[in-house]
């Protein structure tokens, strides 16, 4: 086995052990996610803390979509007391899960895993996914009419 093949196998092995990370949310996804957060109960208060982890979403886009919130880049561990945390993986979501914190995944897989409370798709049309288990763990609920129009997992 030559050196390149060995390096390649090591790289594949390392990748396989890393937690899955979705692509960073684009501005449209962020806008839809921010609007969906408007249906969370209890609602965010003015100046509510919102944390965006690396690779989850552009911080500026989140701030633009949630102008009344206090948005900052950070890691999932610093999300205590936050209204929402935009995360890039299920592992980050699990770290951020706390009372009243809504975890927003950049990939539906995070909701499938029961780690993120919410994730959105914007193509081919707007689709919103919510994990009932994660929402329950976070102590949040959604508008009952909204829940009739989304995919709960």
């Amino acid at each position: 086995m030559n050196k390149h093949k060995v390096m390649g196998l090591i790289a594949v092995g390392l990748l396989a052990t890393l937690p899955a990370r979705g692509a960073e949310m684009d501005a449209k996804q962020v806008t839809i996610a921010a609007k969906a957060l408007g249906f969370v109960s209890p609602k965010a208060s003015a100046g509510a803390k919102v944390v965006v982890t690396a690779g989850a979403a552009p911080v500026a886009a989140v701030q633009s979509a949630m102008s009344a919130a206090s948005v900052a880049a950070g890691d999932a561990g610093s999300a205590a007391g936050a209204f929402a945390v935009f995360v890039a993986s299920a592992d980050e979501a699990k770290k951020a899960n706390g009372k009243g914190t809504v975890t927003v995944g950049n990939d539906v897989a995070c909701v499938d895993a029961g780690a993120c409370v919410i994730a959105v798709e914007t193509t081919p049309k707007v689709t919103i996914y919510v994990s009932k288990a994660a929402a329950s763990a976070a102590g949040v609920d959604f508008d009952p009419n909204f829940k009739m129009m989304i995919t709960e997992k």
Binding site: F39, D143, N145, M149
Partner: peptide, 22 residues
């Protein structure tokens, strides 16, 4: 108290979210 969950449908916000009438 925090604003409550809406029992009546908020047509405007839902239309804005989904990009089509509800």
């Amino acid at each position: 108290a925090q604003a409550a969950m809406a029992q009546s449908m908020d047509y405007g916000s839902l239309q804005d979210l989904f990009g089509e009438p509800v």
